[in-house]
Design a protein around this nucleic acid. Structure first.
Length: 610
DNA sequence: TTAGGGTTAG
């Protein structure tokens, strides 16, 4: 039953009447004279409107017959507008009802909350309290949904307290909504406290917790909870699957992702378009682009999100031409691209160095599809121009674009200055960036790299001092590799892994062979990314190299080594991995924070353009 | 009348 039918039935139940035949827009309302139009007739007409058009006519009759003070008719009119998603007229009519029932308050709040009108939903909730109506167990989930939608923790906590005050402290629906609210506000620990204290849990409460973990980056916990849920006898549905697929994609855990894909096939959820899209995204983000494409080709009734996922996948792997092919095919099949599709296709062009094509899509978006470029699109364009060496054009675009640029846009340009060794522009932009975002370590590192590449060590030292003065904390570099159903994590110079001795011994041997092949450490990158990675001796023990050695030791020779890194791969590791792929005759796929690098036979798919 | 969800730059 959909929302509209739901609400119409509610109205009928409330009146305790049998359903009447609906009045459609094709059936003109029988106009009656003001004398013989009774409240009962209008009530009947309001309940049977099947579309907004006859509803407006009945509403007009209600006003012209002077019945606009009749609370029962007003309630019915408000409900009728709500059922068609016409929130504004519903709100206006609702405001004229002298003392709405708690039931009516709940429905009005629910309608706003479920349609994403979170501010209005909370304002209504607040007005309900102000009018002296106590919220009941049906009101809280709607109000909490609004708090979750706004990530408004202050209001969320307040509603939580209200629920306890009115004696709704142990309600399955409210508790699940609380888990969701705390998770969406980024307070996963609080969500977990609510979850742990629940006296009973069902599929939705488990799923809310799993989704909360996955969306907040606690991916291992999300997967653990999936198993705990199964152990507790609750079978996952499509929503839970979406969350664990997201977790796998973030971890780069392809084996686990495959398991969930099989689970989807066995349970029939594979035919669900959202699940298929999540599977495609998972395979692509785990480095298995071929599998992503296979699932994509088998997916029927693809919508714009599914097409966009495939375009984004090709883009992040550096296969811009394939992304363009998919885009064209999508349009041929009559699916209209949206603003996300354009973000993805322009980004795909950027990663592949397709300057003209990217500019073409930017224009196509505006001229043909009438989509106003947003911050994301401008960011992609700055990246596209910057990577192509068009620094002046990129800067001019930032300065002339109608959207206010954020720091990441300038950061993108700073990245281009690093690639092209442009100190003048780089310094100027860096000053601006440090003012806007004084604690983001990545931008200091970028500037430091620009100086280091020109051997301006005094300036490098100055940047280090600046970081120290501003107490900028660096993000620790972490690499993940999945093996034997586990995610193995490595930090820089990490010695905590049980196989540490063999990993370091392997790297030692590898180093000799690499040097024989002419490997010279890129000392410019000694200063890249991580404080601990600044020492030359540590170059060889960057997290991704430890993960590669672990993969080489443990994984069968024919299987590719897939690594996920939380920072951008440094130039030295990039060179080293190319060599390692040749020496070991292995495919090594590294996903860094920006894109994929497929290493094989001494080359990288990014063609050193990243 | 109540709760959980797929694509997006750097």
């Amino acid at each position: 039953m959909n929302r509209r039918e739901d609400l119409q039935n509610s109205r009928q139940q409330q009146r305790n009447e049998s359903p009447r035949p609906a009045v459609s827009s094709d059936q003109p309302i029988v106009t009656t004279s003001s004398a013989d139009t009774s409240a009962a007739e209008l009530s009947s007409l309001l309940s049977s409107c099947a579309s907004p058009s006859p509803l407006k006519q009945v509403h007009a009759q209600l006003l012209t017959h002077g019945l606009h003070h009749n609370p029962r008719l007003l309630s019915l009119a408000a409900l009728a507008y709500l059922s068609f998603g016409r929130l504004r007229p519903a709100r206006l009519i609702f405001g004229a009802i002298p003392a709405p029932s708690a039931y009516l308050w709940n429905l009005v709040i629910r309608a706003h909350s479920t349609r994403g009108q979170f501010h209005h939903a909370l304002r209504l909730y607040s007005s309900m309290l102000g009018s002296g109506v106590l919220p009941d167990k049906f009101a809280f989930p709607f109000a909490l949904k609004a708090c979750a939608g706004l990530s408004d923790l202050r209001w969320g906590r307040l509603v939580h307290q209200h629920s306890i005050c009115v004696g709704c402290g142990r309600d399955l629906f409210i508790d699940s909504a609380l888990v969701d609210m705390y998770a969406k506000c980024g307070h996963v620990a609080d969500a977990r406290v609510v979850f742990d204290n629940m006296w009973q849990r069902d599929l939705v409460s488990w799923t809310a917790m799993i989704a909360g973990y996955a969306h907040n980056g606690y991916c291992a916990e999300a997967l653990d909870f999936f198993w705990l849920m199964r152990q507790s006898g609750v079978q996952a549905n499509r929503v839970g699957l979406l969350s664990v697929l997201l977790a796998c994609s973030r971890l780069g855990a392809v084996k686990r992702g495959e398991w969930f894909h099989n689970f989807a096939i066995q349970t029939g959820y594979e035919s669900d378009l959202q699940v298929s899209t999540a599977v495609i995204d998972m395979y692509a983000k785990c480095g298995s682009l071929d599998l992503a494409r296979k699932v994509f080709d088998l997916t029927e009734g693809k919508d714009v999100i599914c097409w966009s996922a495939m375009i984004a996948s090709y883009g992040v792997h550096g296969f811009g031409r394939d992304a363009i092919y998919i885009f064209k095919k999508m349009v041929e099949e009559g699916v209209e691209p949206n603003e996300v599709t354009f973000t993805s296709i322009i980004s795909a062009c950027s990663h592949a160095g397709l300057l003209e094509e990217g500019q073409g899509y930017f224009n196509l978006m505006k001229i043909v599809y009438g989509i106003e470029p947003g911050l994301n699109h401008y960011a992609c364009m700055v990246d596209l121009l910057g990577r192509a060496g068009k620094l002046t054009e990129a800067e001019a675009l930032i300065q002339t674009m109608p959207v206010k640029p954020d720091v990441s846009l300038w950061g993108s340009l700073l990245g281009a200055c690093r690639i092209y060794g442009n100190i003048d522009v780089g310094e100027r932009i860096a000053d601006l960036i440090f003012e806007l975002s004084p604690s983001h370590s990545g931008y200091y590192v970028l500037l430091s790299n620009i100086y280091a590449a020109k051997s301006r060590w005094n300036d490098v030292e100055r940047v280090r001092e600046l970081m120290s003065k501003k107490k900028v904390n660096k993000v620790q570099g972490i690499s993940l590799i999945e093996f034997d159903n586990r995610i193995h994590k490595f930090g820089v110079g990490d010695r905590s892994h049980p196989q540490t001795d063999s990993i370091y011994a392997y790297l030692g041997k590898l180093s000799v062979r690499m040097k024989q092949m002419g490997y010279v450490p890129l000392t410019d990158f000694v200063l890249h990314d991580i404080e601990d990675e600044m020492k030359e001796a540590a170059l060889f023990y960057h997290s991704e190299r430890l993960a590669i050695a672990f993969g080489l030791i443990n994984m069968s020779p024919c299987s590719p080594i897939r690594i996920t890194k939380n920072l951008r791969i440094c130039g030295d590791c990039h060179n080293a991995t190319k060599l390692i792929s040749k020496i070991e005759n292995r495919i090594i796929i590294i996903r860094d924070m920006n894109r994929f690098h497929h290493f094989g036979d001494g080359f990288c798919s990014c063609a050193d353009y990243w």
